[in-house]
Every structure is written in C-alpha cells, then in structure tokens.
C-alpha cells in the first residue's frame, strides 16, 4: 500500500453512442502530492475519476491506486481511498451524524469507534450544530461539507474530488479549500482534484494536467503552465471584418503567429508585459490605419489556456 496513483495508457469508450471519453491517458501522482485535472465539461475528468475509484472499468490501459490494480483488487482500492463525486452522495432522510456513523461502520469501525469518528469529523467540517438535523434540510454548502466528511471516514491515503466546489458560494468554497490544504499538508494525504476553474487548480495544486476531449494536452506546475501562455492577454475588437483581417496580418508579422488568435471576431494576443505592449500594439495599428473598436487587458483564464492549446493542436493559430 502506498499513496500513489499510476496510470498507463488509460482509455474508456462508452458503448452508448461509441463515445471515446478518455484517450490513452498516462500520468503519475506521487504520495503526498496535490494534483489537479483541469478541463472543461465533457473533457473526461469525471470518467477518469470513476475509473480510478472502481466505479467503472476502463476499456484499455492500466491503473494502480494505492498500489492496487483498480480492476483486479477493487475492494483493496476502496479501503484506502476517499471519494467525493460531482453529485453529493447523501441520503436526505438520515441525519449528518447517522450517515457518518453508518459510513464508519461499513468501513469496519465498531459502534463506539464510529461514534467518536463522527464527532471528530463533524467538528472538522463545522457541522456539529446541525449534526442531528436531517440532511434533506441542509443547504448545498452543508451537503458538500458533509460529503467531504464522509470521504474522510476511513482516513484515506488518497482523496479523489470531482469538482468539489462547483456551484458553491465563495465562503463555502474557501472552507473546502482550507480543509483540503490542511489534509494535504498535515496528514500528507495525496489529493486528486478535478476542476473547471483555473484559479482553483492554481491556488491548490502542486501540479496540473490539462485535459481536453479525453486527452492530456499539457502538464506542469501552475507556474510552468502560465509561463507557456504569457502573463497577460490583450483582446481587441474592430468595427469591420476588413479591419480585423488587416490587424491579424499586421500583428502576426510583428509578434509571430503563435501568439495571435482570432475567434468570434475578437483578436487575442498573449504577451509578457501587457501594459507596455498594449500601447505599442495600438500605436502600430494606428500607423497602419486600422480602426480599433475596443482594447481590453486581462490575465489568462482557463478559457484562454484552452483557446490557445486547442488552436495549437489544430496546427496554426487561427480559426477554431
């Protein structure tokens, strides 16, 4: 048993509709590492989590979780992992305490032990006051926190969290982030987190893999990934299609075609120092008599990283 995840050439094709949800995905997560899978809806994040947590079988490849093969030894894997799926798995008719005690007993705790464990976990996720209310009366954020507590019952070596903060308000999101950081730093729990939010992966993870259409397209530390894309991005819009085309031509010539992307009649440029380069770009376009409608300077978001990576995947920085 160890706290590692090793994935080799994992694939999953769903028979229904012949959808290839995961394509030849390989990666490793070290013991104690905080690892994030970053990608849009339908990228294959949830499918990967379901395979690694023994809920579904892959159609190809191999995965070891906590040193055990997810297909051959599912019960061993289940013992050492904690899983919070995208949809919380709580029974609305039981109380928070009852759910935790049931979960503990299923994991082999005796009555007394399950009681103690529940008290501790309720305290950790700050649900002590609401412990004896039925879960059906909990708010969305409380359910999430209870769900997280349920995943911790067996003191997992590896924690899988599938979009744990999607749909949460900022204060609940912060509470979950704080607890995940604590688990990772104090207990050395390995964490595998999926998210759509760059900001979340950026602030929590040691290492990020970006997944798109079932494939890993980039892997690195948050810093490495962001430096690939440039620190800032400048977005320009134009009154006419003619101006847009002219601007693309002019700017491609001056900054290199990799950095200029045209999409939805907007032109985006990735740069290192936005404030300074914005002035130069506007001046350059003015000299060429291209009429600019608006200019916007911002930090890269997940959308931008995707736009960049997918446009690169298609060979040339052009129409998507």
């Amino acid at each position: 048993m160890n706290g590692r995840i090793e994935v080799e050439h994992l694939s999953k094709t769903f028979k229904k509709g012949n959808v290839q949800a995961v394509r030849d995905v390989s990666f490793e997560v070290e013991e104690g590492e905080f690892f994030a899978f970053l990608g849009p809806n339908g990228a294959g994040k949830s499918t990967t989590v379901q395979i690694l947590t023994t809920l579904i079988n892959a159609t190809g490849g191999k995965a070891l979780v906590a040193g055990h093969d997810v297909v051959k030894e599912p019960d061993e894997v289940r013992r050492y992992i904690g899983v919070a799926l995208q949809e919380t798995g709580v029974d609305p008719d039981l109380t928070g305490r009852e759910l935790l005690e049931l979960q503990a007993r299923i994991f082999g705790f005796n009555k007394e032990g399950s009681r103690k464990r529940s008290v501790d976990l309720l305290d950790i996720v700050q649900l002590t006051e609401d412990a004896d209310r039925r879960v059906g009366n909990y708010s969305g954020g409380m359910r999430r926190r209870l769900d997280l507590a349920l995943t911790l019952v067996n003191e997992p070596k590896i924690l899988f969290l599938d979009e744990p903060t999607t749909g949460l308000d900022p204060s609940n999101r912060m509470a979950i982030w704080k607890e995940l950081r604590r688990l990772n730093e104090e207990n050395g729990t390995t964490i595998f987190l999926t998210t759509q939010y760059l900001e979340e992966a950026d602030s929590l993870a040691h290492r990020i893999s970006i997944i798109n259409r079932g494939e890993i397209v980039a892997t690195g530390t948050p810093k490495e990934l962001k430096s690939q894309i440039g620190n800032d991005l400048i977005t320009l819009t134009f009154k006419t299609k003619g101006d847009l085309d002219r601007a693309e031509e002019v700017l491609t010539r001056s900054v290199g075609e990799r950095e200029v992307i045209v999409q939805n009649s907007k032109l985006t440029i990735y740069v290192d120092d936005g404030a300074q380069e914005m002035v130069e770009i506007v001046r350059m376009l003015d000299q060429e008599e291209v009429e600019v409608d608006s200019v916007n300077l911002s930090s890269p978001t997940l959308d931008d990283i995707f736009l960049k990576i997918t446009s690169e995947q298609q060979g040339k920085g052009g129409e998507k």
């Binding site: 289940r78 799926l85 919380t88 798995g89 709580v90 029974d91 609305p92 299923i106």
Partner: peptide, 16 residues
Amino acid sequence: KDIENGFFSRLLLTPA
C-alpha cells in the same frame, strides 16, 4: 431514490 440522490454510488465506493 438512492440512485438518484447519489447514495447508491456512495455505497458502491465503500468496500461493502
């Protein structure tokens, strides 16, 4: 009901 509210999956994720 268990399948719809996710509790069924929660049980499947345990060694039960």
